[in-house]
């Protein structure tokens, strides 16, 4: 056997081996057959074995988590849950929702009552000491809802009003400062619930309602005759899902799945929900150099 023929024999073996390995890998990579190579006690393993995801969320805040006319739970938080279910089981319906009062968002994670809390939760350093946050899925701001039929509709008009401008906001530590950051002279009415904050605007008792940016987008998209967007947003709060600490595989899985849903090759669910609940298209994504 000449040197060349020996090499050709060797290469044939190698080719065959490569094909075999490639075939095996292709099979292994199929989502349904993929078995997470994770540690025995990771939630990722537990959830996959269980066959569905348990998500803690609320039911009283549009457009994040609320019941539609048919009584089904919908919203942006719900969509993120569906994205995870799809990533785990190729089936976005494999989710069990556990309704929580906001006070239970962290306790239910820490005690293991739910696998993950997705409930418009602002990421903070304090909270990060108790739970693990995967990458944020929305940047919330504060914006001013105004009345299309009112005297002051745009942010410029509200600013021009000076001390005559009345703004309602949810009762909170730092509520006054939050408004005065952008409207230093405005009168601030602190009100007990979000719905009442908005009702004050409709009743004409205030000129603008300081609410979440997402709320403004939602209301204006639904009721343009009743609500107007003053066109200015400030503050930025990162919304994140909460997971239990000490579980790197679970944390990484959720982060990666969210990342792919927002910037990767599986953005259909996220984009559709973004449009439905916030009335805006997701900005164009860039290829080449990673920009997220």
């Amino acid at each position: 056997m000449t040197e060349n023929s020996k090499r050709r024999e060797f290469l044939k073996l190698g080719m065959g081996g490569a094909v075999l390995a490639g075939a095996a890998a292709a099979v292994a990579l199929s989502a349904q057959k993929a078995v997470a190579q994770s540690a025995e006690n990771s939630l990722l393993r537990t959830v996959i074995d269980r066959g569905h995801l348990i998500v803690g969320t609320g039911s009283t805040n549009a457009p994040w988590h609320f019941e539609d006319e048919a009584g089904k739970l919908v919203g942006m938080d719900i969509t993120m849950a569906k994205i995870l279910a799809k990533g785990l089981f190729d089936d976005e319906t494999k989710v069990e929702f556990v309704l929580q009062d906001p006070a239970q968002r962290i306790p239910n994670i820490v005690t293991g009552k739910v696998d993950i809390t997705i409930q418009f939760m602002t990421m903070s350093a304090n909270r990060a000491q108790l739970v693990a946050f995967p990458r944020p899925y929305y940047v919330e701001g504060v914006s001013l809802l105004s009345s299309p039929n009112g005297k002051m509709k745009s942010f410029e008009e509200l600013t021009a009003g000076g001390a005559n401008t009345r703004i309602s906001i949810l009762q909170n530590v730092g509520a006054e400062e939050a408004v005065h950051k952008v409207l230093p002279e405005a009168q601030v009415m602190q009100i007990d619930t979000q719905a009442n904050v908005i009702a004050a605007l409709e009743a004409g008792r205030v000129d603008g309602a300081a609410v979440d940016l997402s709320t403004v987008k939602w209301l204006v998209a639904r009721n343009p005759e009743k609500y107007a967007d003053s066109g200015f947003a400030w503050e930025s709060m990162l919304y994140g899902a909460a997971l239990r600490q000490g579980d790197p595989d679970w944390l990484n899985f959720v982060s990666t799945t969210f990342e792919i849903a927002m910037f990767g090759n599986d953005t259909a669910l996220y984009d559709a929900a973004f449009l439905e609940y916030f009335g805006t298209k997701v900005p164009d994504r860039k290829t080449g150099f990673p920009s997220h």
Binding site: S59, T60, N61, A62, F66, E67, D68, V98, L99, Q100, D101, A103, Q104, T193, A195, N196, I198, A199, L219
Partner: peptide
């Protein structure tokens, strides 16, 4: 009971308000 996420009359009221933003 709504504190534990059980949907009673109070919670049901809040759910509708959460959707319609009409509390009164």
């Amino acid at each position: 009971v709504s504190l534990l996420g059980v949907v009673d009359l109070m919670q049901a009221i809040n759910q509708v308000i959460g959707r319609t933003y009409e509390p009164m």
